[in-house]
Amino acid sequence: MSLGPFFRLPFTDLTGCMVNHQHYSRCAGFEMKMMDCLEAYGVERGKEKCKTLIEDFKECALRTKQKLRIREMRLERHRQYFAGERPREELYAKPPTDDSF
């Protein structure tokens, strides 16, 4: 994850704030804490000092642990099905009816 632009130009200063997570309520708090910490320590020193905040923000934005957990559950369901421990009807839950939303 890049924390700063490769080339520092006036154009990068104008467009640097255009891509952020402040419009998404889920990661906005993590991003603000991370950016406040990086602003306090600077980018280079902040990579060490703010490591936990950066990791929390990355996890919130990329959802790597959540995707791995979903993958493991799916693989376990399929393993149980192929081993004969689970019938095909119980492989996945039934979807909600059309008028339930």
Rank of each mutant, 00 (worst) to 15 (best):
E90T: 09
A61R: 06
R74C: 11
K47C: 10
Q80W: 01
L91N: 07
F82I: 11
K49R: 14
C50K: 00
A40Q: 13
D98F: 15
L38K: 01
K65I: 04
M73W: 07
L53S: 04
R26H: 09
A61I: 07
K49F: 03
R63Y: 05
A28H: 07
A40L: 10
C50G: 05
Q66I: 09
T97R: 11
L62G: 04
R69D: 15
A61H: 04
G42N: 06
A28D: 06
T64H: 11
I54F: 06
P87R: 08
D99Y: 08
E89Q: 11
F82S: 12
A40I: 05
S100P: 01
E39S: 12
K47H: 06
A83W: 05
K33T: 07
R86L: 15
K65V: 03
A28Y: 02
T97A: 09
C27W: 00
L38D: 00
L38R: 00
G46W: 00
E39K: 14
S25D: 14
Q80D: 10
G84Y: 03
A93I: 08
Y41E: 09
A93Y: 09
M32Y: 03
R86Q: 08
L38I: 02
C27E: 01
E72S: 10
R74E: 14
G84H: 04
Y41T: 02
E90Q: 15
H78G: 01
R26W: 04
G42W: 07
D99R: 12
K47D: 05
Q80L: 13
R77L: 08
E59W: 04
K65A: 14
D36Q: 14
C60R: 02
Y41A: 10
